[in-house]
């Protein structure tokens, strides 16, 4: 139970960090970390198929799409 609290706390801090980073690549990395911990929480709630889909879409696909989008625009927020 303490472990679930730790994971939720880390997820919250990563989400706040993703919104205040000025370097957009760092923000994308923090968002990928939020998605990874969300997959762990789905796994702890005994839903391994949902965790598999979340890990595939959230961690890899969204990261790659965001990186391609940042490459077409600017990297640093002003």
């Amino acid at each position: 139970m303490i472990f679930v609290f730790l994971l939720v706390l880390l997820m919250l801090i990563a989400a706040i960090a993703a919104s205040i980073f000025k370097d957009l690549i760092s923000a994308v990395i923090a968002a990928a970390l939020v998605s990874l911990i969300a997959a762990i929480l789905f796994y702890l709630l005994q839903a391994p198929d949902v965790a598999m889909a979340e890990a595939a879409i959230g961690a890899a696909l969204v990261t790659v799409v965001f990186i391609i989008a940042i490459r077409r625009t600017k990297r640093f927020e002003e």
Partner: peptide, 9 residues
């Protein structure tokens, strides 16, 4: 899956 994201990064 996480390997693919890290390679793109």
């Amino acid at each position: 899956i996480s390997f693919v994201g890290l390679v793109a990064l």
